[in-house]
């Protein structure tokens, strides 16, 4: 099974390299680093990280705690859009869609959640429950997300960083989203949302936590493996798609 961690926070070369190295050691076959719209243009070291990983993969160092260091790691850079309103969201999507491999919109505001679910150019709606008393999506948004193939992200760092009442409320939000997912079949992503190596968890550990909020282990494994890979595959073909359902085939 090829696991993919779809949301790591990118900062600088050293931090990003350590994150990628550790996630490779923990059994992920790929990961995507997300940058803000301001920082994305200046990131030019991902190739270097990949080359260094390949070089280390063939000669694992002595101090590596576990020897299962995989060298074929798929690294992707994405943009995290934090829009102020719907019009701002539309402008930023149009600006970054062709430049980035993955496009993620930070949710929380109902108008942003709705606009993201209705826009097929968006890949992921991140944390629709952010700073809310409900889960941030209802049956209408869920139908739109399923129709436009917009994945809803469940960020595990929200559970990790919260405690007592807040953690139980977060689990309740996740349970609500899973209930809608079972009914409307929109894609759901489980991500670590890591910004340091202490936030990273093994895929099987995340599956065990997902079991706590009512997600079946098979669904959780799909959310960590098939769903992100299918989004990436779809994005590779996006430039050949003229309109929805029509694709240019090169002979």
């Amino acid at each position: 099974m090829k696991f993919f961690d779809c949301h790591l926070y990118g900062k600088n070369y050293e931090s990003d390299y350590r994150l990628i190295e550790e996630s490779s050691r923990l059994g992920y076959s790929g990961a995507s680093l997300f940058y803000s719209t301001d920082n994305y243009q200046s990131v030019d070291y991902l190739e270097t990280i990949n080359e260094n990983l390949l070089a280390r993969g063939t000669h694992p160092p002595e101090d590596t705690p576990s020897p299962d260091f995989s060298s074929d790691f798929h690294l992707v850079a994405g943009v995290e859009i934090r829009p102020k309103h719907g019009e701002d969201l539309r402008k930023k999507i149009n600006k970054f869609r062709k430049k980035s491999d993955l496009l993620m919109v930070l949710g929380g505001d109902l108008k942003i959640n709705r606009a993201s679910c209705e826009n097929s150019k968006v890949d992921i709606l991140s944390r629709p429950y952010l700073k809310r008393r409900d889960c941030g999506i209802n049956h209408v948004f869920a139908k739109e997300a399923a129709r436009n193939n917009v994945a809803i992200e469940l960020n595990m760092s929200d559970i990790l960083r919260s405690q007592s009442v807040f953690r139980s409320k977060m689990l309740a939000h996740f349970r609500e989203i899973i209930k809608l997912h079972k009914k409307f079949h929109f894609p759901v992503l489980i991500t670590s949302g890591a910004s340091s190596i202490y936030d990273l968890r093994t895929p099987r550990d995340l599956v065990a936590v997902a079991n706590c909020f009512g997600m079946a282990p098979e669904d959780a494994i799909l959310s960590l493996s098939n769903v992100p890979w299918s989004i990436l595959e779809f994005n590779q073909q996006r430039k050949n798609m003229i309109i929805a359902g029509v694709k240019r085939i090169e002979s």
Partner: peptide, 17 residues
């Protein structure tokens, strides 16, 4: 699952895999 949710101990970062 419980071990996965450990993140701090006495003000220092900890992670269980």
């Amino acid at each position: 699952a419980a071990m996965c949710l450990i993140h701090h101990y006495k003000g220092n970062r900890v992670v269980f895999h």
